[in-house]
Amino acid sequence: MTTHAWMPQSPCGAGCVEGAAPSVTWSRRVARAVAAGSVLLGAVGMLLAIVALPGSARAVVLRGWFRLLLRAFGVRLRVVGADRFQGTAGRGVLVASNHVSWLDEVALDAVQPLRMVAKRDIRSWPVLGRLVAAAGTVFLDRERLRLLPGTVAELGSALRDGAAVGIHPEGTTWCGLASGRFRPALFQAALDAGVPVRPVALRYVLADGAQTSTPAFVGDETLLDAIGRVLRLRGLVVEVHVLDEIAPGRAVDRRELAALAQAAVDAVSAWDIELPGQRTHGHALAA
Rank of each mutant, 00 (worst) to 15 (best):
T2S: 12
C12G: 06
C16Q: 04
E18V: 03
G19I: 02
A21L: 05
P22F: 01
V24T: 08
W26S: 11
S27K: 10
A31M: 10
G37W: 07
A43Y: 06
V44L: 13
G45R: 12
M46F: 08
I50A: 08
P54S: 09
A59Y: 04
L62E: 13
L68R: 15
F73A: 13
V79M: 05
V80D: 02
G81M: 07
T88Y: 03
L94I: 11
V100A: 06
V106M: 08
P113N: 08
K119H: 06
K119W: 09
R120L: 14
I122R: 06
R123I: 03
P126S: 11
L128R: 09
G129Y: 10
A133L: 04
G136T: 07
G136S: 11
E143M: 11
R144Y: 04
R144A: 13
R146F: 04
G150Y: 07
T151S: 14
T151P: 04
V152N: 03
G156C: 09
A158Y: 05
D161W: 01
V165H: 05
V165F: 03
I167V: 14
H168T: 13
H168S: 11
T172G: 10
T173R: 09
R181N: 03
L186A: 02
Q188P: 00
G194E: 06
P196S: 08
V200I: 02
A201W: 02
L202N: 01
V205E: 07
V205Y: 02
G209T: 05
T212W: 00
L223H: 09
A251S: 15
V252S: 15
R254M: 11
R255P: 00
A259N: 08
A264F: 07
A264K: 14
V265L: 09
D272I: 03
Q278D: 13
T280A: 14
H281E: 11
G282P: 13
A287W: 15
